[in-house]
Nucleic acid binder design. Structure first.
Lengths: 345, 345
DNA sequence: TTTCAAAAGTTAATCGATAAACAAATGGAC
DNA sequence: GTCCATTTGTTTATCGATTAACTTTTGAAA
């Protein structure tokens, strides 16, 4: 592997000059220096020179490494793949390496301190308790898809209010006037951050009010205590709802599993067909949404862009640039589970 | 951040001595040295000393970093989360950092060489073309869930033959004698490595021969050219199959989507019910397998263990230890989509 | 008591880059 | 032609650890 010294020897200059040329600290104001700089670059290229970041990092007090905090819970997905893809892309472009760090409950800061990162990325799966780790680390940090736990932490979130509004507008345009919002069952609520879901609901509510049917929003949230959630969890609630007069003609479910259960199983057992009698929208676009039958209309969060934007913000903070924030937008993917309400309804 | 010098000053010894103590190069044969070593360790602990791997890496020519090669195809999942979890765990225990690297088609070795990894992990999604990158890098490498492309590359795979056998044995024990193996459609086959699927099929075949029904294996593989695969792709094939005399009483599908399609949609349109009339097994356990109705019996690959074992092997190779290989085993998860065949069949 | 091999410790040099301090070259203004 | 601010280049020192070469200690054997 070629070093600065190798290039310097071949060009008859000092290593510092080579370093300056390659780091763009030579403006090339005079012909003589411009030519020399050119030659240095050529030789560097010829030798396939790549900076040794170990040495660079040692001297500059930086590491060009960013830690990605993940949980060590076996059940939770480590990180959404598309977020990861966006992070890798954008950090790569800025010459930062993305390193995975497991969060140990026992020794939370140990291997974390070892790494000496320049910054930290926190996925939204992490809980408040674990966020404490980063406070202690005193490093630039960005949280993806969750509110910042304190002022000095960056946060990148899509406009969840708008995401909810997107789903609602679609249904309103189809002619629906009474819409149910299917929330998590009690046992599931504990395991998920509420922030997104509340925003979605608020967005739905806003659009319905704008459309003049403010009281058409029906909250569906079963009280099942600690029992695990199954398709049956929602049955009693929906059955009694559909026995009454103000039955909703469309349902918005706060994740894909619930959407599928409502669309595929409950609609059947209620004697309804999706989408003819009942429209269903999922607020989370999962792979299964595209191959179930009917294919389920979903709101897709801009995961890849979330990753890219988080990287951009964090690099900005590390390098004291603080670029203006952008808010990635959610998209509606219209599939086969939504249609105008049945004529009689 | 404390350095060796800080500890050395406080203990009245040289930095080299501190380094030796902390790296366990002092045997403590004499009381005087044992005591001194103890004191050094105490002070190190007190100051919260952590080795600066930038300096260590610079001198030792190692980086303690392992690159994880991933595709840059937007559609493909970057990496299976459970594999990743296993990798993080095991590398963490061995003090290696796991760094994500995007594979650029254009400039395949550039940022790769920058990183100067000690080794490489390759996920099974990568294709032969991309494997070329690692050959050029000349580093210890391990491929997860795919055969090694050359002798000097490590490979960690579960026993896929046994995985197929597992599914077959389950069905045979239930009393099935004619079993269909649902392979990918033509258009999908191109996008997936065939190795696993061939092994699964071979395992199924072996078990059926052992059970004395060697000709009971029915291959189901639609010829749909380049048309995208949908639930309808399999309909003609299955319809004609179920019109004939030798209809299978059970189907093994080579992924979750196909299993779901066969179990949920096709069985209905054929006038069969799952599992009463038709049993279905998925060779890939995906989240949806657990919440669809019926919940689908699946073979779960030991993803987490694959990650752990890959890390173990690679660290062994890097540190010239070459531990004996272990083969993680697949497991059968019995759910509601399998039952004894109907009496008449 | 002397001798000696093993163990422990010290000093000096090094990995590859960059920062700081200083010296030299340059082109335009006077 | 001289002066000067600017740009460029050089020398020296440094980041924090480890290796190499060498010296000192040590406990036991002779």
């Amino acid at each position: 592997m070629a070093t600065l010294q190798d290039i310097a020897d071949r060009c008859g200059v000092s290593t510092v000059t080579v370093s300056n040329v390659l780091n763009g600290k030579i403006k090339g104001s005079w012909p003589s220096s411009a030519a020399r700089a050119q030659r240095v670059r050529e030789v560097a290229n010829e030798l396939g020179y790549r900076v040794d970041w170990r040495a660079k990092a040692l001297k500059t007090k930086r590491t060009y490494m960013v830690g990605l905090l993940t949980t060590d819970k076996p059940e939770t997905q480590v990180i959404e793949g598309r977020v990861l893809a966006g992070l890798i892309e954008a950090f790569g472009e800025a010459s930062y390496q993305l390193v995975f760090v497991r969060v140990y409950k026992d020794a939370p800061t140990a291997d974390f301190a070892d790494a000496r990162f320049d910054g930290i990325v926190i996925d939204y799966h992490l809980e408040a308790e674990e966020l404490e780790v980063i406070r202690r680390a005193q490093l630039p940090a960005v949280v993806i898809n969750a509110p910042a736990p304190s002022d000095d932490v960056l946060s990148v979130m899509p406009d969840h209010l708008e995401a909810g509004a997107l789903a609602a507008r679609h249904l309103l345009e189809l002619g629906h006037r009474r819409i149910g919002f299917v929330d998590s069952s009690e046992s599931e609520q504990k395991h998920w951050p509420r922030h997104m879901i509340e925003q979605w609901r608020a967005g739905v509510r806003r659009e319905m009010r704008n459309a003049g049917c403010g009281d058409g929003l029906i909250e569906i949230e079963p009280r099942n205590g600690d029992a695990p959630e199954t398709a049956d969890t929602y049955r009693p609630l929906l059955t009694s709802l559909y026995a009454g007069p103000d039955r909703p003609t469309a349902l918005i479910a706060n994740n894909g599993t619930r959407a599928a259960r409502v669309a595929l199983r409950l609609s059947e057992s209620l004697g309804l067909r999706c989408p003819d009698d009942l429209s269903v929208v999922s607020m989370v676009d999962e792979p299964a949404m595209d191959w179930l039958s009917p294919r389920i209309t979903s709101v897709a969060l801009p995961f890849r862009d979330l990753g890219r934007e988080a990287a951009r913000q964090l690099v900005g903070r590390i390098e004291d640039a603080d670029p203006e924030p952008r808010r990635p937008r959610a998209e509606l993917i219209v599939r086969d589970s939504t249609a105008p309400p049945p004529p009689g309804a």
